[in-house]
Design a binder for these strands. Structure first.
Lengths: 347, 347
DNA sequence: CTGAAAGCGCTTACAG
DNA sequence: CTGAAAGCGCTTACAG
């Protein structure tokens, strides 16, 4: 092979050590190398040969080629997680849970969508070409499953609204929203405002509708104009609140329920700047219970979502699917709890 | 092949559509299918055949198998980014930059390290088995390169302290630290404290030493005991500050320089709770200029680091490397700027 | 313009 | 316990 072409990408400086090279050095076949390299040697390879192969592997720095291996076995040892929103601090805890459940057998790879985009079937199809052992999809589009056929082992996270036949681990955000409503009603609030997120995530819809339903049942009113929505950004939320507050106040609003803690931080911030007393004049609640909510001042009443557990459970389910087991329960729903703090409750 | 074994993982329900199936349906060879499927048809495949193949691809829902393709070509169309700290909001902007530069030719996959761990050569070696077209490594361990031999196209991000021969895009954090020192000295501060991060990231070391050197030059003093360090967590930083402040105050400290904005948020929070006037009694500076710093109250003086640009430049360099081009400059350093705000400057 | 064929690196029945 | 060989799905010279 003459290499006389001008543009020669990727100079072959990086010589790949193959199983064949190891086999030659050890004086065995590549089959034996494969067995040893994959830890399947016991009872199938003589101690002498195993030692020889190990020596050769070490000397040559051999690492099993994932591509060749994946092609031969039909799947890779990769688990791919598709997620929309890595900038959400909550997400880091989910990842930690996934990693802890996955252990070292599978390599976790993250694929993030563009800002504001939910994971689509299209994204995922491309990823399927990498033959992941399994797929974890966080907060997918509603049309996700219709479009994606025969996807192999797959577990959805935070995907309310999907049929019971698809393996999913969900957070009981509706319950959390009801807890918020109950808490505010018990504290005597009659008129409340709602600050929503603008991404079309289903979880936001659930939070909102569950809260509104419960509020209505409990005799709380959302006055006209007392619903707003912004992106998940402290500053933007603060501005929106600054603009809305005079009207809300005039309408008798005494509490604002936020779709995320981040929205609530914006309100807290603006309230401080504008001298609005919290919770005296206005109670504020969040959702997600981010770490900062425990320590902000005032600390933020928020719905705690078990992120680490969400990730762990999802990965555990996926592992079962990969092993060809039946799932006892296709759908797992994790409890959310209300953390009552200073933003709604005068100590 | 009899499939009489009991445990049969991954039921073959998911029938893979192969190029051979497409070829058969279209009445052509797999070579032709490959050309069409990869957009290399023009001038090499007749219009008739191309149309037939396209029809078959659509009808069958064929997607090129990434594994087979990668094995045949030697590399995948994947770019893998290894990063330590996705919970840092700054990271999301870096990713956005990487994605925008990468476009659709390469699929970006993220591999995150365990909490508190920097990317190691070991992590990366496993990833190499996936034959990425290129590798982006954010904030690697110092020993990273010694341990990793012949890694193929590789660009480091935020990796100060590596030799000039390794392609890297860095942030000029030292310059930023000097700006902070200059700003505080100009405002008349004589005694300052430093609140550092505890992860051993080189960037923290750089921030600290650059600041300390500049401070000394400018005649500012760091009193005994006026250096502390905590994890990157608002609450923890707040507690540490609460404990340290009496001593610092007694020593005459009038400004605290923080290694990250998150640390500074902790101080802001504790100061509010403790009634310490900022910036009247104490000036506070951060680092990273997170979005919230513009809108906190008081807003936070901070060193702005161009995260999106960092990601973009790194990806652009990597693309050149992948294409076999020489890099004009192995090392790119991006400017940091000081954003002076309310936490150091009375309006 | 086209297809037969080799080859990428590995794994896994299979025969010994 | 061991190795020769087939095969995973694709791409790419090569010959026509």
């Amino acid at each position: 092979m003459h290499s006389t072409q001008k543009p020669r990408p990727t100079p072959p400086s990086r010589r790949r050590v193959t199983a064949a090279m190891v086999a030659e050095r050890a004086g065995v076949s590549t089959a034996t190398v494969s067995l040893v390299a994959n830890g399947k040697a016991s009872g199938r390879v003589s101690a002498t040969n195993e030692a020889k192969v190990r020596e050769a592997i070490r000397a040559l720095g051999y690492v099993v080629d994932g591509i060749g291996s994946s092609l031969a076995r039909g799947v890779s040892n990769t688990v791919i997680m598709v997620a929309p929103d890595i900038s959400n601090p909550f997400f880091a805890t989910v990842i930690a849970g996934v990693r802890s459940a996955l252990g070292s057998k599978y390599q976790l790879l993250l694929s993030v969508t563009d800002a504001g985009q939910l994971p689509s079937a299209d994204d995922t199809r491309r990823l399927l070409g990498l033959r992941p052992a399994g797929l974890l999809v966080d907060a997918p589009e509603l049309s996700f499953l219709e479009e994606l056929s025969a996807p192999g082992p797959l577990v959805l996270l935070d995907a309310p609204g999907f049929g019971p036949e698809v393996p999913a681990v969900n957070l009981d955000v509706a319950h959390g929203a009801r807890l918020v409503a109950g808490h505010l009603a018990a504290a005597g609030h009659k008129k409340v405002a709602y600050l929503d997120g603008t991404t079309g995530t289903t979880t936001f819809e659930l939070r909102r509708t569950a809260f509104l339903d419960a509020a209505a049942e409990l005799g709380m009113e959302i006055p006209d104009g007392a619903m707003a929505s912004t992106t998940i950004n402290v500053g933007v939320a603060a501005d929106a609140f600054a603009e809305a507050w005079p009207g809300w106040k005039a309408a008798g609003v005494t509490a604002v329920v936020c779709a995320t803690d981040t929205h609530a931080y914006g309100i807290l911030q603006e309230a401080r700047a504008a001298g609005i007393s919290i919770p005296g004049e206005l109670a504020v609640t969040g959702f997600d219970d981010l770490p900062y909510s425990r320590t902000s001042s005032p600390s933020l009443t928020s719905v705690n979502l078990p992120g680490e557990l969400l990730g762990r459970r999802a990965a555990e389910q996926l592992l079962r699917l990969i092993d060809g087991e039946e799932l006892e329960t296709q759908q797992v729903t994790l409890e959310s709890t209300l953390m009552v703090r200073g933003s709604t409750f005068e100590a």
